[in-house]
């Protein structure tokens, strides 16, 4: 098991390095040099940039040096917690990121839980009642869930809530708590607001996972060990839950890591509609403003989170699957 973890760890680190290449590439992708864009931005904001300031920036990012050196300077900054500077906010990227990454993680985790808690039971039901009414209804509803753009679902849900219950659900906090220090009341307020994005982000994932679970379980129900368990005289419920479901869920744990990108994508875009202080609005805004150090770093962090999630999913799988544990 330790060897297994070590192997996954080495693998993860090498992926992180590759991701940082992509991040750097993205930063340098837009036409025009960083300095040009910086100046243009400053002019738009009506401030003049001092020559000395530009020089300092050039030195900081090594812009007069060859590209590999620039990359090295950028990467070295990570270790010290220096991710570059956002023009738009004129703040360090690191300050901007920490505030928002936490909420992104909270929504992603919540959505993941929601997806599993809803999709797995429905998947089991539909597989054990194949082609019955409930199965067909779930298939069609699930398909509809897959086909609605996240942001539209968010809008519709907000309108429905506003119409039915008469309160607005945008944001993560009620007005009085936005700047308040953390307290129990603030946490409760957060939870009250959090469920909407969680449900919205989770919907398409639920539809997908449900179908996969159904398919897996149908396969497993045809396996000989399920027949053998039945032939021992076990109750049908025991056969399904103990032998079939556990085996059907296994491959899903591998999917757990792979479903994270979709969830994060969903949360990014839903955040815009719902006005959530997560990575989403900041990231897309940075892209529109070509604030590339901010955007590139955000993108990289999202990818880091995913790789980490994958790594954890791998370990989880190793923990519960004897075939991997004893490898």
């Amino acid at each position: 098991m330790l060897a297994f973890i070590a192997r996954r760890l080495v693998y993860m680190i090498s992926t992180l390095v590759l991701i940082s290449f992509v991040g750097f590439l993205i930063i340098n992708l837009p036409p025009g040099s960083y300095i040009d864009v910086f100046q243009a931005q400053r002019q738009l904001q009506g401030t003049h940039t001092a020559e000395a300031e530009l020089e300092a920036l050039k030195r900081r990012y090594g812009l007069d040096k060859p590209v590999p050196v620039q990359y090295w300077i950028w990467v070295r900054g990570f270790v010290r917690g220096d991710f570059g500077r956002s023009f738009e906010f004129n703040r360090e990227v690191s300050e901007l990121i920490w505030e928002r990454l936490g909420f992104t993680v909270a929504i992603a985790t919540g959505s993941l839980l929601f997806i599993w808690l809803v999709a797995i039971p429905i998947g089991i039901y539909t597989a054990t009642h194949q082609y019955k009414l409930g199965d067909n209804v779930a298939t069609i509803v699930g398909m509809a869930g897959l086909s609605i753009p996240d942001f539209m679902l968010a809008l519709v849900l907000m309108v429905v809530i506003q119409r039915l219950f008469g309160f607005t659900v945008g944001g993560l906090f009620s007005r009085e708590y936005v700047d308040a220090p953390w307290s129990l009341a603030k946490v409760i307020d957060l939870v009250k607001h959090l469920w909407v994005p969680i449900v919205v982000v989770g919907t398409s994932g639920t539809a997908g996972l449900m179908r996969i679970m159904r398919g897996n379980l149908l396969d497993i129900l045809n396996m000989q060990y399920v027949q053998a368990a039945r032939a021992r005289g076990l109750r049908e419920a025991t056969v399904v839950v103990k032998h079939a479901v556990r085996n059907a869920i296994h491959p899903l744990i591998m999917l757990l890591g792979m479903s994270l990108p979709t969830i994060i994508s969903g949360s990014l875009i839903v955040s815009i509609v719902l006005g959530l202080p997560t990575t989403g609005p900041l990231y897309f805004n940075a892209l529109r403003q070509q604030d590339m150090y901010l955007a590139g770093t955000f993108l990289m962090f999202l990818a880091f989170m995913l790789v980490l999630g994958n790594f954890l999913a791998d370990i989880l799988l190793g923990l519960i699957d004897p075939r991997i544990r004893y490898e």
């Binding site: 396996m223 060990y225 027949q227 021992r232 103990k242 032998h243 085996n247 004897p322 075939r323």
Partner: peptide, 21 residues
């Protein structure tokens, strides 16, 4: 009756035991 009176063994020993237990 199953398992107690009438028991059965299957064709594919490789797949007739649940791999997780």
């Amino acid at each position: 009756i199953r398992g107690n009176e009438i028991a059965m063994i299957f064709q594919e020993p490789m797949t007739s035991l649940d791999p997780l237990y």
